[in-house]
């Protein structure tokens, strides 16, 4: 009896238990797992995913989905590079050669704009958020392919593009052979901290929780729910562009499929981290746990030389496991909720 009381709490923090368990498992499986290079690799891989997950968390907590963020990432990474590099091979850019700083600003604004369009269609157009962002996912990816005719845009060996690569490529606090912290990792860490503060200690975040928990009650409490949802989408779009910028620095050359299929990992990380797909529940800290867990597993399987085909299977199983955990959360909360609903008051006739 006493144990069952702690199950919901355990389920909420299960992510950290699993993360430690998985980490120890891989330490025993691979001799190089516990090296600073490898740990840095895990964090580097987690950095791009993490930024997308922060944006997604805002949208999910408001009770919506943003499936389009992987395409926003791709388009923005590509567009930023296009503005910087020459039109000639091997770069295949736009030949506009604008200042890279300006280019970065342009893509962040572009990403936010895509988010705003999603938000407008959903709140003003009263369209279904899942379908709207799914359509946006296809449209942006299609535009990206049509625009480049499938050719990658590269900034490799083009010195002015160095600035564009800084976020994804450079490291700080470097002590040779011992430690170096990639800029991207620090940026993502900072974004998680800001995300946490905004979600818990700013009016915006608190109102998002209320909207996701019960939109009608939030509106009746004087909250402009539509505006808040649009803002959540703007953040998601802007952060997707930022993630695109970071990823561009890591790959150097932007293929048209950059970010393709990433959204599954983003959703899995969020759900594993305890963000409810029904909205209103979840924390930034949990989401961070989800991101670290997936990155650790990915890296560990890589080191164990597990075949790519099996990696897909395992990823699928992890997503299923996450949904299983989510279902248990609902199950263990329900008995209380049910009793409350029965003993409590009448709701209104529908």
């Amino acid at each position: 009896m006493q144990a069952s009381k702690h199950i919901p709490t355990l389920l909420d923090h299960l992510i950290w238990v699993i993360l430690v368990g998985v980490f120890i498992f891989f330490v025993f499986q691979s001799p190089v797992f516990l090296t600073s290079t490898n740990i840095t690799n895990i964090f580097t891989a987690a950095a791009v995913l993490g930024i997308l997950v922060v944006g997604q968390t805002f949208v999910l907590i408001s009770g919506n989905f943003d499936l389009s963020s992987e395409s926003t990432l791709g388009v923005c990474a590509l567009f930023g590079m296009y503005l910087i590099v020459p039109a000639t091979p091997p770069y295949w850019g736009g030949g506009i050669l604008i200042n890279p700083y300006l280019s970065i600003a342009v893509i962040i604004i572009t990403g936010s704009l895509f988010g705003y369009i999603n938000g407008l269609l959903i709140t003003v157009g009263k369209m279904n958020n899942f379908i709207v962002t799914l359509a946006m996912l296809l449209i942006l990816r299609g535009l990206m392919m049509a625009f480049t005719q499938g050719k990658p845009i590269s900034g490799l060996n083009f010195p002015p593009a160095e600035v564009y690569f800084w976020l994804g490529h450079e490291s700080l606090f470097e002590i040779p052979d011992l430690i170096k912290i990639p800029v991207g990792v620090m940026a993502t860490g900072l974004i998680f901290i800001i995300g946490h503060i905004v979600l818990n200690h700013r009016r915006f975040g608190r109102e998002l929780y209320a909207i996701g928990g019960n939109k009608q009650a939030a509106i009746a409490s004087g909250i402009d729910a539509d505006k808040r949802v649009r803002q959540a989408y703007i953040i998601s779009g802007g952060l997707a562009a930022l993630a695109g910028w970071m990823l561009a620095g890591r790959v150097g050359s932007i293929q048209v499929n950059l970010g393709d299929g990433y959204i599954f990992t983003v959703m899995a990380a969020a759900v594993i981290g305890g963000i409810s797909l029904q909205g209103g529940r979840g924390t930034m800290l949990g989401a961070l746990g989800g991101v670290l867990l997936l990155s650790t597993i990915d890296r560990g399987l890589n080191l164990m030389s597990v075949s790519v085909f099996w990696v897909k299977v395992i990823q699928g199983l992890i997503i299923m496991f996450a949904m299983f955990i989510d279902a248990q959360r609902v199950r263990y909360r329900k008995p209380q909720a049910k009793v409350a609903a029965v003993t409590a008051s009448p709701a209104n006739p529908a």
Partner: peptide, 22 residues
């Protein structure tokens, strides 16, 4: 309609009480 319009049931007492005066 308390459940539909009054409370955000899954959130805390604190979140609900302060909701309109954040």
């Amino acid at each position: 309609d308390r459940h539909g319009l009054g409370i955000v049931a899954i959130r805390s007492v604190r979140d609900n009480v302060s909701l309109s005066v954040l």
